[in-house]
Amino acid sequence: MAGLTGKDAVLSAYAEALANAPKGRSLTQDALRRLVNNKAALVSIFILVAIVLFALVGPYLLPWSFDKIDWAGIRKPPDWEKGHYFGTDQNGRDMLARTLQGTQMSLIVAAVATAVSVVIGVVYGAIAGYFGGRVDALMMRFVDIMYALPYILFVIILVVIFGRSPVLLFVGIGFLEWLTMARIVRGQTLTLKQREFIEAAKAGGAGPFTIIFRHILPNLTGPVVIYATLTIPEIIVTESFLSYLGLGVQEPQTSLGTLISFGAPVAEALPWMLYTPAFILVLMLVCLSYVGDGLRDALDPKDR
């Protein structure tokens, strides 16, 4: 499900620019300034913040919680008087509350999985880049192989074997999403390694891991932030797909994918059950895509 935002290309271009410009920080600031000037990206960020806030705070403001059954209102269309603003499902649970809960779950999965993939990718890439030579060649060959393999199959196998807990879902997805991050970090590390401050640290007797963690990683903030922005939508899609197959988040917990998989078969009779979660999912993905495009343009102004 990768390639939604073409992050490999964006990040490589950015990393190249970082490597060529000695003042990496001002490059990132420049890009941020251009991003803020991009209206579509700015509106998208605003909508995303609103969705996140509403998903986190909203459930406390609604009259119904996501797992509470309203015996008087089963399979009902939106009804403002009763407080079912988006209708109810076959079990009489409030769709808005469920959608908010599902959004929350999708966001948490995306955040945790992205964090896992960042950690793995950074550590792997930094080690490969720092030690270089044969270690690097071997480690990067492994990444190339992994790139060629259909990773969704492995996620499914992992989920099947280790049960269907959301935690595993986070880790499993993150475990297979780190490849791009590793490539970028390796490239950056190779460049940073040549710099004087690393030489100075070495001369001062610092070991390789001290150098990696204290001197190289802090210089990777820019790429990591961008990588995360571009990875989150991919993971949201992956999670919703797995949940749609019944391999992801389980009842009574729910996620956008789970909700869609329950809504789809009954969409003719109870359309609100499909369209409510589908709308939120697509809205988030559209916004994230505009933010991603905005980032790409901000980082690579010659593209226009």
């Binding site: 499900m1 939604l4 697509v282």
Partner: peptide, 18 residues
């Protein structure tokens, strides 16, 4: 081109079915 890229495949399939 943006449409199939932002609407996940399974959702697109469901909507087309409908």
């Amino acid at each position: 081109v943006l449409i199939p890229l932002v609407i996940p495949n399974f959702l697109m399939a469901n909507l087309a079915q409908l």
